[in-house]
Design a protein around this nucleic acid. Structure first.
Length: 1184
RNA sequence: GCUCAAGUGGCGGAAUUGGUAGACGCGCCGGAUUCAAAAUCCGGUUCUUCGGAGUGCGGGUUCGAUUCCCGCCUUGAGUACCA
């Protein structure tokens, strides 16, 4: 017996249903995730949205719908699902708006968030809103500031290969100096001993530590836009001017906070292998990190302008230092050596020849100074001051300070002291020497110093195996050696070239990579092995910013070197011996006749001394070994990844928890005082003195006595008591947009925590994101920086995993379908006496429908004439008093103009009335329509954007079709990761599907709910027919659907499951299925996609609880077993007909049946098949 | 230039390990219902000279290729002389 229950007549009132269930979910906190649960966890995350003023357009929810389907599916699977949402609410647009309107960004941001929230709610997402975070909320950015402090208090230890607390570094410095420390740090670090360190004052120590910290202050060259008063990122500059406003941009050096992300380059690269992210995304991160393995090689410089340096001597390094103008100073030093003062001569007599056991040099160049005497190994400078120094005490003091900064000690004596009591002077010097540790100039540290002076030209190469192919060196024009080594004869050429390069803008240099240019410096370097001189050139194909800014040019193995050599007639020695397929070499074949041979295989080396006969791998290894023996090179890995600038001259961002003390050193504010809240300012522009907007804050000085601290005005700070006082001016920059988004996924685990950014329990439970969905445009920004922070936090033991997202999917963009109308006009000529004003407001705009436009474009004379007549007649009607004539046909103007897509229907017909009302100046527009009276527009797919009038807002779609239709349709459009145009026309398809679905459950009289139950103890009681009786076809449909939908969700192929649902409903409708056994599980399948209608029908089935955690139906293959198969019968691979045969036929039986069939004989037309391929259960293919 | 992704009807797209190419939907065409329209329902819809041909183009492997291999073309994205 079958029980029938009829509830009441209902139509699919989606607006009412959707509102009802959205309210229900909110009221019952249906999607709240628990931090303690017996269930397995699953974390589904969407990329943080920026709440823009324009609100959501239909492209935004695409990824959210996909992740929501997955989250809901996982709930049906029995997981405790964390699916949070929040806002990356600091950012430029709100600030720009504040600048224009004076409205506080916090106010506009809050309004925008409200709109976003309303729009998100109406789509029915299963977010746990109790965990919402906003980056601009002080309770959130408190922890962003805290992480910044952790970075400041850390350094990267290459030996332990992780970040460590800065205190461990201080201990090392105090006990052994820095020579053995293997840290990631600034490039220009001087070595010091433990004694030096302990003798340094606090400021000096802090300056040194800053060179090791993971976030540090440094002078960085930035893109400065004076008009906007801020630094711009590279992608904010378009064609050399600012993207916003088109203002000029200049290169400027500024002191900024930087993040030492380069410390993590290798781990960021290696980590990619552990995570399931899209290949293209990993690929762009790999490119960005840009690892290249090779060697660094030093080429000594053979000739200096003065000729006083000779190449080849081993103890050259450290012999002399000097800045860019050293060659000028050197001449002066020589002069002074020749004409010493009496006192100098006397002292030199005593110091020379190692009378004091230390080697001294006289009139030597240190940095940009010529000092009287210096002991390089002990870094002791002895100055003998004549009368003249009394008048320049200040300059001397400054000079002393600079030298001391380089760890030199300066002792001064007067002429009188030296001449009067030279014994005393020598004793003092001896004393100093005894207290100073010996400085080895060739320590590991000094190798990190960029090449300068006689150290030679340091290059990085990925092909050390080709070192015998070097025929010249090329330096970047900006290289600091250029001015030092250029010979007088070449000076003119070189300077002219440098000037010409400097003039060329970045853009010119980029656009014009084909032109080869350069200049010879006149200098020669020495080949490390052959000791042959190699000419040194400069060329702008070598970039100052990469590697060492210099290359060893191997024209036979590098195309750019090859082109350069050809252009300047530099020899191209060949070192490649091509391999034949048999393994021998074939030297008659010249690999480099027309271009460089850049392959790393298929050759052995020749003309390469000890590398002869070796291949790429062997030779690379051998070359590095030999270079290391000579001390002129070593194996080296280079990364393109640069440290990230972390300061922005902006208001609407996180303030730094930093003040500058009286010595000007940055100090972190203690954790207990966080957050440092963003101050109020009167205007959001830079100050008159060019300081960032925070410079406008009246109170922005830190004033702290012990546990008491407050932010006060400059005056209040200066008048406060200095005793026990901490504090100073607060940092004026704010953090960049990526600060808050680099760790938010951790905050969602425990967003309300006030003691930590998340509790250990929460972090250990949720661990990482299982599924992360977002746009690929963040590939090298957010997604790289956030991995860096996560690894850092992992090193510090704060988070349990070092990769925060196991799987990441990129959703494609939904593009707009822009509409264009064609405007046309002719050149108008009128009689001067009876003229009319072309700017007369009565002068209308003329538009022509698409097909006629196309005819005219093709040169259709008739259509052109008609259009012309229409134009002229219309004008004559409007201006009856004028005599108007037109220019020739050639002067006809046809311009496509964007028109708002809301005026255009799905058949591309323009609503002329709406269009006329759109703009005042269109109100009297004239139209040439199609012959049937419609006016058609041209369509084109473009990015969705306000300025293209092609934005489609989800609000209206929800009103017209409902959120379930929108969700299904966005998924139905195509594969998630693909870019695809939005076309509202198709939404009726999925909407009809939902109506059909509704009908399937409402097959009662007058559309009443009607479901038959066969369950003996069903919820509504009653009896009883054997389960599944007579449901064969329906069960097959159901289980086919279960299988497909489950596979689809797990493969993120959401578009195909929508088709599957349609097929299922079509089939069940055809079967007139009313069985609860079928229709109930079907709802669970559908619920992730169309949750509102699923909830409604679920409750109509008699359930009192939400469908959201109902168990996902289990696929049972037995329902799909077929007894026969409709075999496709192919002839030579082409399917000609099908044949129904029993499933249990074996190959032989199939062949007999097929060959016996008359259609087979017809196809064969008397031929005998050569071969019959039979795959039982699949196909039959007859060949012949 | 390099790297990655993608090219299938009028359109969005499907074909999951090589096995019936064009599922599903839109649009279009025809029909039913209606005084009429909307809505709904039913049927058709790759091209075709009715033999066949056909998944960007040209080759190859295979009994069989949208799927695998080689070469090319086009489009989109990222990157910009990376030594």
């Amino acid at each position: 017996m079958t029980l029938i229950f009829i509830i009441k007549r209902m139509t699919y009132d989606f607006n009412k249903i959707e509102k009802k269930w959205q309210d229900y979910w909110a009221k019952n906190q249906t999607f709240k995730a628990e931090n303690k649960s017996e269930k397995p966890k699953f974390y589904v995350l969407d990329m943080f949205p920026y709440p823009s003023g324009a609100g959501l357009h239909v492209g935004h929810p695409l990824g959210y719908i996909a992740s929501d389907i997955y989250a809901r599916y996982k709930r049906h699977q029995g997981f405790n699902v964390l699916h949070p949402q929040g806002y990356d609410s600091f950012g430029l647009p709100a600030e720009q708006y504040a600048i224009q309107t004076g409205q506080h960004p916090a106010v506009t941001t809050a309004e925008n968030i409200k709109t976003y929230r309303r729009q998100l709610d109406q789509i029915g997402f299963s977010f746990d809103w109790s965990r919402e975070v906003r980056t601009s909320d002080p309770s959130y950015y408190k922890w962003t500031q805290w992480i910044f402090i952790q970075l400041f208090n850390s350094w990267y230890n290459n030996d332990s290969n992780k970040a460590e607390d800065i205190s461990t570094l201080e201990k090392l410095f105090a006990s052994e100096g820095n020579s053995k420390v293997n840290a990631v740090c600034d490039a220009d670090i001087m070595s010091f001993s433990a004694e030096d360190w302990n003798a340094f004052d606090s400021k000096k120590q802090q300056q040194i530590l800053l060179q090791y910290r993971l976030t540090y202050l440094a002078e960085t060259e930035v893109n400065w836009c004076p008009a906007l008063g801020t630094v711009l990122a590279n992608d904010e500059i378009v064609n050399g001017v600012s993207e916003r406003g088109g203002h000029p941009v200049i290169r400027k050096k500024m002191t900024q906070w930087s993040m030492r992300i380069s410390a993590y380059a290798e781990r960021l690269l290696q980590g990619l292998d552990k995570i399931d992210w899209t290949d293209s995304l990993k690929e762009s991160q790999r490119n960005w990190i840009g690892k290249s393995v090779g060697a660094s090689v030093v080429f000594p410089i053979l000739s200096f302008p003065g000729g006083e340096e000779k190449a080849g001597s081993q103890n050259r390094a450290g012999y002399m230092t000097g800045g860019n103008n050293s060659h000028l100073l050197l001449e002066r030093a020589r002069d002074m050596r020749a004409k010493p003062t009496l006192a100098e001569a006397a002292l030199w007599e005593q110091l020379r020849n190692k009378n004091l056991d230390s080697k001294f040099r006289q009139q030597h160049l240190i940095g940009d100074f010529i000092v009287d005497f210096v002991c390089l190994s002990k870094k002791l400078i002895v100055e003998v001051d004549g009368k003249i120094h009394e008048s320049q005490l200040e300059e001397d003091a400054k000079r002393t300070e600079i030298l001391e900064n380089d760890y030199y000690k300066v002792v001064r004596f007067t002429n009188e002291e030296v001449l009067g009591n030279i014994e005393n002077v020598l004793e003092k010097i001896q004393n100093e020497l005894a207290h100073r540790e010996c400085h080895k100039s060739d320590s590991r540290k000094s190798e990190q110093i960029p090449p300068s002076g006689v150290r030679g030209i340091k290059v990085f190469t990925t092909r050390p195996d080709t070192i015998f192919g070097v025929s010249f060196m090329t330096l970047a024009p900006e290289h600091e050696l250029v001015s030092q080594i250029t010979t007088p004869a070449q000076k003119g050429d070189v300077e002219a070239y440098i000037l010409a390069t400097a003039k060329r803008s970045e853009r010119d240099r980029m656009a014009d990579v084909k032109t080869i240019s350069g200049a010879f410096t006149g200098a020669y370097a020495e080949h490390p092995f052959t000791k042959q001189p190699i000419p040194v050139w400069i060329g702008d194909y070598v970039l100052a910013g990469y590697g060492t800014g210099a290359v060893m040019s191997v024209p036979c193995g590098d195309q750019r070197d090859y082109d350069f050599a050809k252009h300047f007639n530099i020899p191209i020695p060949n070192i490649f011996s091509p391999l034949t397929p048999k393994g021998g070499t074939e030297d008659s074949l010249n690999l480099i006749e027309t271009e460089a041979f850049t392959e790393k295989a298929g050759f052995v080396l020749k003309n390469s001394d000890f590398l002869n006969g070796l291949d790429y791998k062997e030779a690379t290894k051998k070359a590095i070994q030999e270079l290391e023996k000579l001390g002129q090179g070593e194996g080296k890995t280079n990364y393109r990844l640069r440290d990230a600038v972390f300061s922005r001259q902006r208001y609407w961002g996180e303030p730094f928890p930093v003040y500058y003390d009286e010595t000007g050193m940055p100090q972190m504010i203690d954790k207990k005082f966080l957050p440092i809240e963003l101050p109020e300012v009167e205007k959001y522009l830079p100050t008159e003195t060019g300081e960032p907007p925070l410079g406008n804050a009246k109170e922005w000085h830190w004033l702290q006595y012990g546990d008491d601290a407050k932010i006060v005005s400059k005056e209040a700070f200066e008048s406060s008591s200095p005793s026990g006082r901490l504090g100073g001016a607060l940092e004026l920059n704010t953090m960049p947009g990526w600060a808050g988004s680099s760790w938010y996924f951790n905050r969602y685990m425990d967003p309300g925590n006030t003691e930590a950014f998340a509790s250990k329990e929460a972090l250990d439970y949720w661990k990482d994101v299982d599924l992360y969905i977002g746009g690929s445009e963040h590939a090298t920004g957010h997604l790289l920086y956030s991995r860096f922070w996560q690894k850092f936090l992992f090193d510090k033991g704060v988070v349990p995993v070092d990769e925060y997202a196991k799987k990441l999917i990129n959703q494609g963009m939904i593009l707009g379908t822009s509409a264009f109308v064609y405007r046309f006009s002719w050149m108008v000529m009128s009689n001067p006496d009876k003229g009319f004003d072309i700017l007369d407001p009565k002068m209308p705009y003329f538009f022509i429908t698409k097909s006629k436009y196309e005819k005219i474009k093709e040169g259709n004379a008739e259509e052109t004439k008609k259009t012309k007549d229409f134009f002229l007649n219309t004008l004559n009607e409007i201006f009856p008093d004028s005599e108007i004539s037109l220019g020739g046909e050639i002067s006809m103007q046809l311009n496509p103009t964007h028109v708002d897509v809301s005026f255009v229907n799905s058949s591309d017909e323009l609503n002329i009335e709406q269009f006329k009302n759109w703009r005042e100046y269109y109100s009297n527009a004239k139209f040439i329509s199609e012959d049937d009276g419609t006016f058609k527009v041209k369509r084109e797919v473009e990015k969705m954007s306000k300025s293209k009038y092609n934005v489609v807002n989800p609000d209206q779609i929800c009103i017209d079709y409902g959120a379930d239709s929108l969700r299904l349709y966005e998924m139905f459009l195509g594969p998630l990761e693909q870019y695809k145009p939005w076309n509202t026309a198709g939404i009726t398809g999925v909407h009809n599907f939902l109506k059909k679905l509704w009908k399937l459950y409402h097959q009662g009289e007058n559309g009443a709910f009607y479901v038959t139950s066969s369950s003996p103890s069903g919820r509504l009681g009653g009896a009883v027919s054997p389960p599944s009786e007579g449901l064969g076809e329906a069960l097959k449909t159901l289980h086919k659907t279960i299988k497909k939908v489950q596979e689809d969700i797990e493969n993120f192929s959401f578009n195909t499951s929508v088709s599957t649902f349609m097929i299922a409903v079509n089939e069940l409708t055809a079967q007139k299925c009313t069985s609860k056994d079928i229709l109930e599980p079907l709802l669970v399948l559908l619920s992730p996609y169309a949750p509102h209608i699923a909830e409604e029908l679920w409750s109509q089935l008699g359930h009192n609880e939400s469908i959201s955690t109902a168990a996902f139906p289990i696929f049972d293959a037995s329902h799909l077993v077929e007894s026969s198969k409709n075999y496709p019968i192919s002839f030579n691979g082409k399917m000609r007909f099908t044949l129904e045969l029993p499933m249990d036929f074996d190959a032989k039986q199939i062949e007999e049946a097929v060959m016996a069939n008359e259609k087979t004989q017809e196809q064969l037309a008397g031929r005998t098949p050569k071969k019959v391929i039979i795959v039982p259960g699949k196909i039959v293919n007859i060949v012949g």
